[in-house]
């Protein structure tokens, strides 16, 4: 089994080679009187279809079509290659015209969402293991509820046992919102511990108003805040891992549809230059 690092170098090498071949072919063909855009366009179109085919491959899990990881490697480096081809296809210009501009825009959405997705896919998993319990995304609401129930039991216990309302008041005022659902998405995405520190700071500043029993309860609440915060962290990162595809996949289909029209239009209106 080739190590991942070796595979990366290998793939980068192949990518660099292909990119060089594309640029060299472009350089050579641009000497020709024929426009290069038809050759580069068809190649790009084929490549985009091949890249989009990864989505189809993912549905056909039960056929021997090669492992998904191999496909992803081809998808990633093919995607990068498509950018080289795209630049060559538009001949280093920004296309004008509404249709072509929207085609370009679609390509950029798909390409950059893919690039971003790749970055996310590589950066976030390691962060997920560093903090909080690894949980299934679908179960986060369940765990949130469990933590909330626990906290509320403690809070209600305060009322019945200590007959004071300090903790319940504090809970309603400062904590209920926090425990109700996923919070602090952006802070977690950018790995800020500010929300947790703020909450804990607030609790600690209230601690002097509490008696001994209440302080014990607060200690348990603090543990639950940390647990909920970790869960939020998991939620924010796992949500991001799932949702970037909302940009990548739908616009791929739009891109393919637009590109078909573009292709037909380009040929019909070439005026014989193809």
């Amino acid at each position: 089994m080739r190590s991942l690092a070796a595979r990366r170098w290998y793939s980068l090498g192949v990518f660099a080679l292909l990119a060089a071949v594309i640029l060299a072919l472009y350089a050579i063909l641009s000497f020709s009187i024929h426009p290069t855009s038809f050759a580069s366009g068809w190649t790009l179109w084929g490549l985009i279809l091949a890249l989009a085919a990864y989505n189809v491959r993912k549905r056909l899990t039960f056929l021997p079509l090669g492992s998904s990881s191999k496909w992803l490697q081809v998808h990633i480096y093919g995607g990068l290659l498509s950018f080289v081809l795209f630049i060559v296809h538009v001949e280093f210009r920004v296309p004008s015209g509404a249709f072509e501009l929207s085609l370009t825009l679609l390509y950029f959405i798909v390409f950059f969402s893919g690039l971003g997705g790749l970055a996310i896919s590589r950066a976030i998993p390691a962060r997920l293991t560093t903090r909080g319990e690894e949980v299934l995304f679908e179960r986060i609401p369940k765990f949130t509820k469990r933590i909330r129930d626990d906290v509320e039991n403690i809070v209600l216990g305060c009322i019945s046992e200590t007959q004071t309302t300090a903790i319940p008041e504090f809970y309603v005022e400062h904590l209920k919102h926090f425990f109700d659902g996923p919070r602090h998405f952006w802070q977690h995405l950018f790995q800020s511990s500010r929300p947790r520190n703020d909450l804990l700071g607030e609790i600690r500043s209230h601690e002097r108003f509490l008696n001994k029993d209440e302080r014990a309860a607060v200690q348990r609440i603090i543990d639950l805040i940390c647990a909920k915060d970790d869960l939020d962290h998991q939620y924010a990162l796992q949500w991001t891992l799932k949702v970037w595809l909302f940009a990548h996949i739908p616009f791929t289909y739009a891109l393919v549809i637009f590109s078909v029209f573009h292709l037909v239009l380009a040929h019909a209106f070439a005026g014989g230059s193809e």
């Binding site: 899990t61 390691a126 997920l128 690894e134």
Partner: peptide, 28 residues
């Protein structure tokens, strides 16, 4: 390898597809 896993659940869905739409393991 959780440092590489993006929690995409492709494995679970593939398992599902191979077993009459039922997953046969849990990704935890």
């Amino acid at each position: 390898d959780l440092d590489r896993c993006t929690r995409c659940d492709d494995c679970v869905r593939a398992c599902s597809n191979a077993h009459d739409n039922n997953p046969r393991f849990l990704r935890h």
